[in-house]
Design a protein around this nucleic acid. Structure first.
Lengths: 160, 160
DNA sequence: GTAATCTTGACTTATTTAGTGGGGATTATA
DNA sequence: TATAATCCCCACTAAATAAGTCAAGATTAC
């Protein structure tokens, strides 16, 4: 279990998808300009998200990405694990006692903790976020047309 | 809230201190050889842990580090925050709406999540780990002498 | 006073994150 | 059918961070 800006990007992008889920697919350009993440970097992240079935891509004009399963089946842990390619966090996987006994002991304790953390994040799904009242407001007022217009301005160059 | 190997090193090292707390100070050399973390890197981490009062250094022969407060007052979140110098994780701290409304919205949602995560890790203290039965065993059988002997072998060179 | 230890700081290297660029493939729409 | 919008994939670079090295000093038990 690891938690970095990479995971944060993925989670917030997925939140974005969840928020606009019923308005059809969301383009990466939208997310890029909207959240200030570079388009190509998003592409890399979404490649992983797609491989694990968390999103599905819709090609062609009017396409984009949408959630691969209902939002209540996508946990924060799922997203982070998908992009942060799980570091084999101790080297002594499980039963091998890697050096003395003691090294393995702290590894064991860490694994306990890591597992608890995973369970915690696995219990939080995207659906919880779209219940947020502020989300509802935005989700209603911001229709697809608006984002299309925003998209006419080149999103690749760095916004000052 | 960030979670990387750096934080993991700090947490497992602190676990080590907690385990051997009553046997007097633990040297960084011990932790280094025992857990396979480089001595100088540990020094950097412990400098931060000391600044935040999580550990206290004891100089001179027989010295080392010991916990700066009772283990039940040291949470995992404390340790991680001490070494992982909190990334200002959104840039728009709090009330500023950083771009459109939407960017700030996902930031807000992320902050919610981050806060929940913090609270979770703040609820887990070192004292929980030393209650582990396996820890008790090790803690008893491994007396200070043993670690001193191990310490006679140069810990700086890379063990193959 | 000597050796074991902490303490500090400057430096190097490895790894990861983030971003760039370009060349496709697919498909809605004109 | 042509065009443009989009996903998709790959190889590369740049920046940031993690991890480790080296060296010099401070403090204290013995």
């Amino acid at each position: 279990m690891k938690l970095s800006t990479k995971g944060r990007y993925a989670v917030t992008a997925m939140m974005d998808l969840a928020i606009h889920d019923r308005e059809g697919p969301v383009t990466l350009s939208d997310i890029s300009s909207c959240q200030g993440i570079s388009l190509s970097y998003l592409e890399q992240l979404f490649a992983k998200l797609r491989q694990t079935g968390l999103v599905e891509g819709v090609r062609g004009p009017g396409g984009g990405y949408r959630l691969g399963k209902p939002s209540h089946q996508i946990s924060v842990a799922d997203i982070i694990m998908a992009v942060d390619e799980n570091i084999d966090n101790t080297r002594c996987k499980g039963s091998k006692d890697c050096n003395k006994g003691e090294k393995c002991l702290t590894h064991h304790l860490w694994n306990d903790l890591s597992e608890r953390l995973y369970d915690f994040l696995d219990g939080i799904t995207l659906s919880e976020f779209i219940k947020n009242p502020e989300v509802r407001k935005i989700s209603h007022r911001q229709d697809t047309t608006a984002s299309r217009i925003a998209n006419m301005f080149p999103p690749r160059s760095k916004a000052s």
